[in-house]
């Protein structure tokens, strides 16, 4: 008995609507993030991550309203990421009912922002999202760099050093996405996950590439991840959260049922 590994479904939300499609078999409006989050809560998800891809200012207010509605109906932890740039953004999201906020590009532009955020709100609610891509050749030893703008823009920053630095600045958790694997359904980048997980003292969420349940097991047992994040395998009803958990338990992983 002890701490369970976590399964975290991720919702991409634009102006208050889930995009990229969520096609539960028997859900009326798959676009309503509150309804989708409720479904995941009932299905046994351990947390929900809400990725706000809204660009406009007006859309942000919609987002806060959605977070508020979600927080009054879903009683599991809620992480909100996307476009978090200022301490005020963080305060607004926490006040709306987010439990954690995920910081990505703003950390790369101004690493001290993470420090200020952790000092102000506590490490427990500051997640740093890292989008990493392998930059070493096959013949070389593994090396990954941080990319921004959805993986299009290289920064030249070494991913492992960056993850360490972010935790020294007060990040309480790392959300690690492999840009090489994201959307491929070929499984997590295990070497990357393992390298980051061993490098930092805080929990690591593996993300990017899940195509089947064995990938979730590999992320935990081989990658050393504390939590696994997935979208499409759950959204399209391919697997239920319960099935995923039972599969992981049969592989010897401690889960909450």
């Amino acid at each position: 008995m002890g701490l369970a590994k976590r399964i975290i479904p991720c919702l991409d939300v634009d102006q208050g609507r889930v995009v990229k499609g969520v096609q539960f078999v028997d859900i009326r409006d798959a676009g309503d993030p509150v309804e989708v989050a409720r479904r995941y809560n009932e299905a046994g998800a351990d947390e929900i991550t809400f990725l706000d891809i809204t660009a406009s200012h007006e859309g942000r207010d919609t987002t806060l309203h959605t977070v508020e509605k979600m927080a009054s109906q879903v009683f599991i932890p809620l992480t909100v990421g996307g476009g978090v740039r200022t301490l005020e953004d963080i305060r607004n999201l926490l006040n709306a009912g987010a439990d954690k906020v995920s910081i990505n590009s703003a950390a790369v532009h101004d690493p001290a922002f993470v420090q200020a955020a952790a000092d102000r709100f506590g490490s427990q609610c500051i997640v740093v999202a890292i989008d990493a891509k392998k930059v070493s050749a096959e013949s070389e030893s593994n090396r990954w760099e941080i990319f921004t703008h959805g993986g299009r823009k290289a920064t030249g920053i070494d991913a492992i050093g960056w993850a360490r630095r972010m935790t020294e600045y007060g990040a309480g958790e790392i959300l690690l996405t492999s840009m090489d694997r994201d959307g491929t359904r070929n499984g997590f980048d295990i070497a990357l996950t393992r390298a980051i997980s061993e490098a930092v003292p805080v929990p690591v969420i593996a993300s990017g590439g899940v195509g089947n349940l064995q990938h979730l097991v590999d992320g935990v047992l081989q990658g050393g991840a504390d939590a696994v994040l997935a979208a499409s395998i759950f959204h399209f009803g391919e697997y239920s959260v319960r099935e995923a958990k039972e599969y992981m338990i049969s592989a010897g992983i401690e889960m909450r049922l």
Binding site: L3, A4, S123, E173, V202, A227
Partner: peptide
Amino acid sequence: RLKVPHMGWNQ
């Protein structure tokens, strides 16, 4: 290594 914070669902 046991991660700190202790984060998640425990018994």
